[in-house]
Amino acid sequence: METSTFVYDGDCAFCTQCARVIERWIPTGARVLPWQFADLDTLGLTAAECEEAVQWVGVDGVRAAGPDAIARLLGDSNPLWRVAGAGLRFAPVRAAAWPAYRWVARNRHRLPGGTAACAVPSAGRD
Rank of each mutant, 00 (worst) to 15 (best):
I22Q: 01
A30D: 00
P99S: 02
R102A: 03
A38P: 14
P79N: 08
D41E: 13
T5D: 01
A123D: 10
A19T: 03
D126A: 15
I22T: 10
I26S: 03
V54S: 10
P112Q: 02
D41M: 05
Y101N: 01
A48F: 15
L80C: 00
C118P: 05
L40E: 01
V59Y: 03
D41V: 04
F6N: 06
G114A: 11
V120H: 00
G58V: 03
P34H: 11
C118M: 13
D41Y: 13
P92E: 01
R108M: 05
V7L: 10
P121H: 14
T28D: 09
G10L: 13
R72C: 11
F14N: 04
F37M: 09
V62D: 14
L88C: 09
G61A: 14
A105I: 05
A65K: 12
P67D: 02
D68I: 01
A71C: 11
P99V: 05
Q17T: 06
R63H: 12
T5K: 15
L45P: 00
P67N: 09
V7G: 03
L88N: 02
F90D: 10
T16Q: 07
R20N: 04
L40A: 09
I70N: 11
L80M: 12
W81V: 00
T115N: 01
R82E: 05
L40D: 03
W98L: 11
Q17F: 05
V7E: 09
G66T: 07
A38R: 13
A13F: 02
D60A: 15
A84W: 09
V21S: 06
A65G: 11
A38N: 13
A91T: 06
E49F: 07
A48W: 12
G44V: 02
A19K: 14
W98F: 08
L88D: 11
W98Y: 14
A123V: 08
L73W: 05
L43H: 03
R24C: 08
P92G: 04
A53N: 11
A47G: 13
R102D: 04
V32M: 10
W98A: 12
D39C: 11
R89A: 15
D126L: 14
S77T: 08
L74R: 00
S4Q: 14
D11Q: 06
C18A: 08
C15S: 04
E23I: 02
M1I: 06
P92M: 06
T46Y: 08
S77C: 15
T28P: 03
T5F: 10
Y101E: 01
A71S: 12
V120G: 04
I26C: 03
F90Q: 12
G113T: 07
W56V: 05
V120F: 01
I26K: 06
L43G: 00
R110E: 02
C12S: 10
L74H: 04
A69G: 05
E51Q: 15
R106F: 13
W81Y: 06
A91H: 08
T5W: 02
M1K: 03
G44L: 08
R110K: 15
Q36L: 00
A105L: 14
